[in-house]
Design a protein around this nucleic acid. Sequence first.
DNA 1: TGAAATGTTGGGGCG
DNA 2: ACGCCCCAACATTTC
Length: 464
Amino acid sequence: MVAIKHEKRVIVWFRSDLRISDNPMLSDVVDANDVLPVFILERGTTLARASDWWLHFSLKKLAETIARLGSRLLLYVGDPRDILPQLCEETGIMTVAWNRLPMDESSGLISSLQTQGIDVHVHNGCTLFPLRSIKTGSGTFYQVFTPFSQAALKVSPELPLPTVKKLPPLPPVVPSGVSLDELDLLPKISWDQGIAEVWRPGEDNAQKSVAKFCAAVAAYKAERDFPAVVGTSRLSPYLRHGELSVRQLWYEVARLDTGASRAGVETYQKELLWREFAYNILSARPDTVDQPLRPEFKQFPWRSGTNAKQDLQRWQKGMTGYPIVDAGMRELWHTGWMHNRVRMIVASFLVKHLLIHWRHGAEWFQDTLVDFDIASNSFGWQWSAGCGADAAPFFRIFNPVTQSEKFDPDGEYIKRWVPELAGLTKKEVHTPWLAKKKTPYPAPMVDHKFARERALDVFSSFRR
DNA sequence: TGAAATGTTGGGGCG
DNA sequence: ACGCCCCAACATTTC
């Protein structure tokens, strides 16, 4: 008896998983007869400029890697709901494999492909656990982080898969794609210098960064809140583009979960679980990408009109008059990234001090962050605004001066990004409006005490 | 992964 | 020695 080898032909669809190590959709197809690796750029109405910059280089490196594995990465532009069926028709391939993302069901993609007779292989490749597999006793999704993380810690993530060494050949007919340059991901006017100085995209650099972070993870818990030092992992852009597998990262740090490193490892794993929590929320509630999870917030009286618009612009430019806020906004603009502690401060300032809709903050982050992640971003903003899952209560309003004194005591971070204040003492730098020396730096755009009381008024009367 | 207001305690200066 | 006040330090409550 000779076993019949069924013909297996697959399109593998790369999205936020631009890697070959621990990539389940790739492991699925290594024994196929032929495989078409594709990436499809969706041109939305909003730009994602900084993460597009990153994507350009990620795709370049991924294409080189795939070439080394004996295949070729094909690039297309358009709506995957149109492109994938077209590719199936042209190649005669009737199977598409990918790693699942939170919005897959709501986008109508799966059902649309299946009604066209296309077989869909969906893998768990972007999260620690299969999306929505962590459920409460009654089968609903968790809305509070602590019980979610406790439930998650009772299960182990699947072990990382071996790195793919070789890919099957391309199909006989290869639909023509576009070149990387035709994706038009790089800026036309050069605003990307600062970003290029700080970041090195690519799976190889992701691995180097993991090794570097692991060597410093013992200090994570103590140093992660101080933006002047490199105390955080800085792995978020790699995770967002999937050049790094979150499961691999989990196990790399878990190996160090002992002795002096224990607290650092466990604190960091908790952060990875916050990401996981955000992915699960978005998966269960895809509308929360731009709608509040708590529906009563649809009626919230956010400020709007000309004044609010001007205030938003001052925030975006880093000209609020609060040094820690402006340092963060300028770090973001110049490097495509902002320290996590400072993200919380600037977000609180926008939604509580200025009463501007969190959506505007989320859109600005979408435009400017190299690590822009649709799940983490909407989750984080809703958390800050108080309308999301396990959100900050309405009365939790960060004092930008207190936070600055606490987490940037010497003003080192502030002076790095707000050089106008370099001449002030470490005491004065948090409150330049009280300093003797005059600087060209603006006065606070809104008084803290006034803004705090206004926010408490608006939020508490809204609750009634 | 708050901040500010309010309450409590205890040491030290001083008459 | 004693009571009184001040106030820093810490704790609790409220928003």
